[in-house]
Amino acid sequence: MTGQVAAVSRNEVYSFSKPNRDSIRLLTGLGVEGDVHAGETIRHQFRMTYEPDLPNLRQVHLMHEELFGELALKGFKVSAGQLGENITTRDVDLLGLPAGALLHLGEQAVLEVTGLRNPCAKINDFRKGLLAEVFTMDSVTGEFTFKSGVMAVVRHGGIVRPDDAIQVETPPFPHRSLERV
């Protein structure tokens, strides 16, 4: 599977959205240089209060650009970086990837997909009613559907820019489905 980087974003402070940048630098084992969520241990503002020493499996947040089109059909105008993602992708089935999939971005960077982003209620502060569109529960099976992207850790650092290619490398079988992290 081959895709493309649509946009890159980072923010030095805790904020729901992240401004788009011309490029970001991924740091091995840490995340996006200069981003508030970079670090070896959990940097998620709420989870740091009760799990501060756990490994940071959410170093980089990726979201598929195709979600924005789906949301637009339901009346929600959303663009790259506004939902807090660091890398917005195009033509990559992020939600269909297995745990441990490697994403080769640009010339050097490699990310390992760790799980699904668990959307928080702050999404409704950004756009009222948006949470129901990115986080749903099947009334029959009780299964949750998370549409707000995936989380990853940096296995090999490098610069990532819009229009960089993304090559997907899946792990050996059996594949493990993504769970929320």
Score class of each variant (00 low, 15 high):
2 T>M: 14
3 G>W: 05
4 Q>V: 12
5 V>A: 11
6 A>C: 10
6 A>L: 12
10 R>M: 11
10 R>C: 06
13 V>E: 13
13 V>L: 14
23 S>Y: 13
24 I>V: 15
34 G>R: 08
35 D>K: 07
40 E>D: 10
45 Q>H: 15
45 Q>F: 11
51 E>N: 13
53 D>T: 13
58 R>S: 10
59 Q>A: 08
61 H>E: 00
63 M>H: 05
63 M>Y: 03
67 L>E: 02
67 L>I: 07
68 F>I: 06
70 E>D: 13
71 L>N: 00
72 A>V: 08
73 L>Q: 14
74 K>L: 14
75 G>A: 05
76 F>R: 07
77 K>H: 09
78 V>H: 02
80 A>F: 03
81 G>I: 06
85 E>M: 09
89 T>R: 07
91 D>H: 15
95 L>Q: 09
97 L>F: 01
102 L>A: 06
109 A>R: 05
109 A>F: 00
120 C>Q: 11
126 F>W: 02
133 E>Q: 14
134 V>L: 08
134 V>P: 00
135 F>Q: 11
136 T>I: 00
137 M>G: 07
139 S>P: 11
142 G>W: 00
143 E>A: 08
144 F>D: 03
146 F>A: 10
154 V>G: 08
155 R>P: 08
156 H>A: 15
157 G>L: 09
160 V>F: 05
161 R>L: 10
161 R>F: 03
165 A>N: 07
169 E>Y: 01
169 E>T: 14
170 T>M: 15
172 P>F: 05
172 P>N: 09
178 L>T: 06
180 R>S: 07
